[in-house]
Design a protein around this nucleic acid. Sequence first.
DNA 1: GCTAAATTCGACCAATGTGGTCTAATTGTA
DNA 2: TACAATTAGACCACATTGGTCGAATTTAGC
Lengths: 213, 213
Amino acid sequence: MNQTFQNLDYEKQNRIINAALQEFAENGFEKASTNRIVKTAKIGKGMLFYYFQNKEELFYYLINYSLNLANTKLLEQVDKKEPDFIERLKQIAQSKTEFHLNHPNVLNFLGNLFLTGTLEIPVHFKKRYQEMMNSRISLLYEGIDTNLFRKDIDTEKAFKLIKWSIDGYQNELIAHLKNQNLTMINYDTYWEEFYELLDILKTLYYKKEEEQE
Amino acid sequence: MNQTFQNLDYEKQNRIINAALQEFAENGFEKASTNRIVKTAKIGKGMLFYYFQNKEELFYYLINYSLNLANTKLLEQVDKKEPDFIERLKQIAQSKTEFHLNHPNVLNFLGNLFLTGTLEIPVHFKKRYQEMMNSRISLLYEGIDTNLFRKDIDTEKAFKLIKWSIDGYQNELIAHLKNQNLTMINYDTYWEEFYELLDILKTLYYKKEEEQE
DNA sequence: GCTAAATTCGACCAATGTGGTCTAATTGTA
DNA sequence: TACAATTAGACCACATTGGTCGAATTTAGC
């Protein structure tokens, strides 16, 4: 990658990165078009290949960029000392939402990385991706107080069920917001609705208060 | 569509339909390649345009085919008289699984129909799709006995939470099975696991037996 | 203001892929 | 044998591909 690219003003740099992330996320490496990238990024064709040697180098740059971002902005924002599973999930949801607002294409790009395209991805990237996924799992389960859960239901299964419920809510929310003007949305009401949901999950899966030790 | 296509032996007809469904599902109308379709369907290029006038006619044929299939094989298999929400969901899951095994690309194709491609889809197709989606919703909620549910939790929210939990399980299952040899799988054990999950959901969301009226 | 370097652009390139056609071969049928 | 139905893929004009390059513009130092 050319040093010039790093010296670009933030806005332009971001336009290029986002356009490329989106194109690769939607089409995979092979079918992604550099022509479309420069078009949506609103730069000349020459510039892309001035900043990056070729399509491949751009792709690898984006992997690195995305992994770094996910590690610093997604994983490090959550307090692993919170022992309440649902509270932990709340924090994860919040950091994920913020991440998604600031970097809308990164998670899509990372998610589709390995299921498309004939380009062989270097092992060190695969390794880093695996490490990140493992971190996300331990972020979810490490140091959780299982005592909060009601005893008549397998805790492992409760973990998963709660996770799926929250994912379901978030997916529905995303689908619902997709057609809206993003600047007009009042996010607070959605957060309130979300917190309500978390309370319901607590009454479902946790011991009743009088049972707490 | 040429009559000859209908007279094709079942296997060949299916090869073509599936190849096309997959290609359109993955790439949308514009980016879908008729070359790739004939290649995966293992027919000559000329045949595709002998059976169908052009790419567009093929696409519309697939929409019609998919909508018909979904209506007959997906919606009509569920007993709307079952008043137990979770039992209803069990039936829906079963018919959906069977459908997915027999027609692996149809639901993907229908799902991606409207979110990609510049081709304008005729209104009557949009209408039929909407009707199908509405049918799926009423299939889920119509005639459900809300009395089974515990009183301290909003029933509407319980509906959604249960649905999301089941969807989450199914998604995980699909992701897990993706890398496996499909013929080697013992589905019975997965169904047992699934039934266990449904029991858990009942203990979570339904009244205790002694509370039933 | 002058000059040289850094940056930008898009016309251009050969190569490949596009939807679609057409001919010649094969198969089925009587 | 003869005629029609069916098949495959070479072929078409055109669009798109990843990538290059020279000329134009902007920037920086003097």
